[in-house]
Simulated scan of single mutants.
Amino acid sequence: MSSKIKASLFNHLIDSERQLLDPDVRQSRDALNALLDDEFIEIAANGTVFDKHHVITRLPTEVVPQFYNQHFKGRMLSDDVAQISYQAAYRRSARSEFNYSLRMSLWRKSNEQWKMVFHQGTPCALFTISMDDD
């Protein structure tokens, strides 16, 4: 099994990652349910672990931060599991300082649909935010 990810799948998963940052998606339980696997686990930057139920009940009540993400990389871990990693910067408001992190997600194909099964964001050093769409 090659670890190379097909460009079409890579682009689809980047789009799916970005959907999870979209205010309309974050405030919709149905949209979140469609993107998150039933076995979804997130490890937050502070070490807190969340499951799908926590995320679907928490996100719709949160103020949506301003996000930037860039420098996506992807690889296949198996025929039905893909890994996506990228840099992210976010802030709670236009006056807030940015928080910088390295993000990693695992996406699993089930019934011909890719859903996020794992996500972790780890704080990292400041980096330059690129306004290019990569």
Rank of each mutant, 00 (worst) to 15 (best):
G121A: 14
S96Y: 07
R108T: 14
D80K: 01
R108Y: 13
I41A: 10
I129P: 06
E39H: 06
S93I: 04
A31V: 07
T122W: 01
I5G: 02
V81P: 01
L13E: 09
H12T: 13
P60G: 12
D30M: 06
E112V: 00
A82F: 06
Q27W: 01
V64N: 06
P123I: 08
T48V: 13
K109Y: 04
R26M: 15
F127E: 04
T128C: 04
F72R: 02
V117E: 15
D79H: 09
H12D: 15
F40G: 03
Y100G: 02
A89P: 00
V63Y: 08
R26P: 05
L126G: 07
G74C: 12
T61N: 03
L35F: 06
D132C: 10
A45W: 05
R103D: 04
A34W: 01
L9V: 11
V81A: 09
R95M: 11
W114V: 09
F67Y: 13
R91K: 13
F10K: 00
Q83N: 10
S8T: 13
A31E: 12
F127M: 02
I41T: 12
R103L: 03
H71C: 12
S3D: 11
Q19H: 05
E62G: 07
D37H: 12
Q66S: 10
S8M: 08
K73N: 14
V49Y: 02
L36H: 06
R58M: 01
Y90F: 15
F50D: 01
S78Q: 05
W114M: 09
M1S: 12
S8V: 10
R103G: 03
F72H: 06
K73R: 11
P123N: 12
K73E: 15
R58T: 02
S78F: 02
L20K: 08
R91E: 11
A88N: 10
L59T: 05
M104F: 01
A7N: 03
Q83A: 15
E112G: 01
M1P: 08
N99A: 14
D79E: 15
M116A: 15
R108H: 14
R95T: 14
F72W: 04
R29V: 11
A7H: 00
A45Q: 10
K6M: 10
K73H: 14
H71M: 11
N33E: 13
E62W: 08
S3F: 13
D80E: 13
F72I: 03
A45F: 08
F10N: 04
H53W: 00
E39S: 12
D24V: 06
L106K: 03
R18E: 13
E62S: 11
T61C: 02
R26L: 15
K6G: 09
A88P: 00
D38Y: 05
Q70H: 07
K109E: 14
I129N: 08
F50P: 00
N33L: 09
I129Q: 04
L32V: 11
